[in-house]
């Protein structure tokens, strides 16, 4: 199996995630786009792990670590969004301008 199509699709997922972060207005949707980016990185890691046939399996191990960190990140991110929603009654990212100069 040729590796390049999988890598290109992973790059496409990454750029779609960037597009979602830039365009979406709802904070939860931005977190969804971040998950898309992390997923594309996972695909890259697994593809290179299979391609290089590493004896230490570092691609798979890093993917497991990334999945764990992503779960923690979603928990913290949603807690922050929830607190902002409680204070401002909105999840719209344009309204969170407290730290904007």
């Amino acid at each position: 199996m040729i590796v390049q199509p999988v890598l290109v699709v992973a790059a496409a997922l990454f750029s779609l995630g960037i597009y979602g972060i830039l365009v979406r207005r709802n904070a939860v949707m931005v977190l969804l786009s971040i998950e898309l980016i992390l997923n594309s990185v996972n695909i890259n890691f697994i593809m290179f792990d299979t391609m290089l046939a590493d004896t230490l399996m570092q691609g798979q191990i890093f993917t497991i670590f990334i999945i764990t960190i992503a779960a923690a990140e979603v928990g913290i991110g949603l807690a922050i969004v929830l607190m902002l929603f409680r204070n401002r009654q909105t999840a719209n990212i344009n309204e969170f301008d407290l730290m904007k100069w």
Binding site: M1, I2, V3, Q4, L7, V8, M51
Partner: peptide, 19 residues
């Protein structure tokens, strides 16, 4: 970003994976 990444990936890595 997509064009840059796919250009680098297509030119940099050329291999076959045996399942």
């Amino acid at each position: 970003i997509f064009l840059l990444f796919s250009y680098i990936l297509i030119n940099g890595f050329n291999g076959n994976v045996t399942i």
